[in-house]
Write a protein that binds this DNA or RNA. Structure first.
Lengths: 234, 234
DNA sequence: CGAGCGCTTGACCGGCGTCAACACCCGTGG
DNA sequence: CCACGGGTGTTGACGCCGGTCAAGCGCTCG
């Protein structure tokens, strides 16, 4: 048994008022008074690629906000295989369910190095009843998570292998550079799309041959979208 | 074009205090004071099978609680086919997303005659900030919906056609009579599991032949689970 | 009693899974 | 600096599951 390298680091306490992505996250429209009500420090953390943020059923310490990187939500299926139910990206909240049950419903694993801040449950419970601004934001985050989940099912787990890979390419576009998209290890992509890794590889190669994608690196993680329309109508 | 029969009926105003399934729903632990804060009547409604409760993108009037029957949540996919993302059952809340956006993210259609009550958005907005009891319930409903969505993806849209049909049979067990389960029109089942209706039919027949299921009616809607273990390890 | 719809079953074929070989990248150690 | 080896991605051959097309059957309802 090879020991799993747990690789996470505490980077200090967050300064939420001056957070670079504050407008995307839970604390977007808190006022000075709201911030004054935060009595427990919010930790700034970094997780290495493949490091778990938490595991399924674990008792929750807090809820995470993803500032940089990507995180996969993994569930154990009945027959023991790994199923990736969603991939979270900057601005997303990780482990919202802990607010209702104090436990996590799935396992969260960093896909690449992930920068997060961890907000203690107590802070959120207190603020959600005392700040209508946070209350509203929280509702929006719940709605966003549910919509993401449904989208993931409707868009990525539907139709032929080619359609699924094309849909994933479109979903994983870089928000800042919409012509570029991020892929993952082929077996992870297989677990997202419910197809085998060889099929993933074949369909990517096929889309590259057809001029829809162009590889940007030699590891097969980053591609340029050279024909968006072609991808959309797969 | 065959006109769609809109078939819904208003059955009066709900008496939430004496609701038969109150312990399952949003108003479970409201007190007398909370009820006093409800200034808009809550409508009691019945929708016929195949009638839509609302459509995708529609401006929301309120949120529904399902008291009896089943409702499917349908999304349009990129290529125009129908995809069923979830089936809701008694106690579930329908259209929660309206609380955040005042619009519905999918279409809701009654699978069989459905009895619901419609709670106006204003009532929920008011109570969720004034009653910690509703606030907590609401959080639980969000968490439940998200878990359902992820479960649906992980359990039902994974593996072989046989596994999917078996998983659906187990998920649709009758809560009161766990040995019985409900199926749907074969094309609806196909849209839930992302397989074709002929394949659904074949796999059901096969499970019946193998002694895992036994048909209870001649329409193929109700089956007895005669070998639970066999279903689980498909 | 007949028409029509939905469920079932069969035959055939294509897409995807399986197994295997190979290429390539990268880290390690000589 | 190069040789080596493991891990990961790609590609090929082949077989099977499930999609497609079609026919037949049994309900239900007019």
């Amino acid at each position: 048994m090879i020991p799993i390298k747990i690789d996470s680091a505490w980077k200090g306490t967050s300064d939420c008022r001056n957070c670079g992505i504050r407008d995307m996250v839970l604390f977007a429209d808190l006022n000075e008074q709201d911030f004054g009500e935060i009595h427990t420090p919010i930790d700034d953390m970094v997780f290495a690629a493949d490091a778990p943020l938490y595991t399924e059923g674990e008792t929750a310490v807090g809820v995470f906000t993803l500032r940089k990187g990507m995180v996969k939500l993994v569930r154990a299926t009945a027959d023991g295989r790994e199923r990736i139910v969603r991939v979270l990206r900057p601005g997303d909240v990780i482990g919202l369910e802990a607010l209702a049950t104090a436990r996590y419903d799935s396992e969260a694993i960093a896909l690449v190095e992930a920068h997060v801040c961890r907000i203690p449950l107590s802070v959120l419970h207190h603020l959600s009843s005392n700040s209508p601004r946070l209350h509203k934001r929280l509702m929006q985050k719940w709605q966003g998570a549910l919509k993401d989940a449904d989208d993931w099912l409707a868009d990525l787990n539907f139709g032929s292998a080619r359609q699924r890979v094309a849909a994933l390419a479109l979903k994983m576009r870089d928000p800042d550079q919409p012509d570029f998209t991020s892929f993952f290890a082929r077996d992870d992509m297989g677990a997202m799309l419910d197809i085998k890794l060889e099929t993933v590889s074949r369909e990517i190669s096929s889309l590259v041959r057809d001029g829809a994608l162009k590889p940007c690196d030699k590891q097969g993680r980053r591609y340029e979208i050279t024909n968006e329309v072609l991808l959309q109508r797969q």
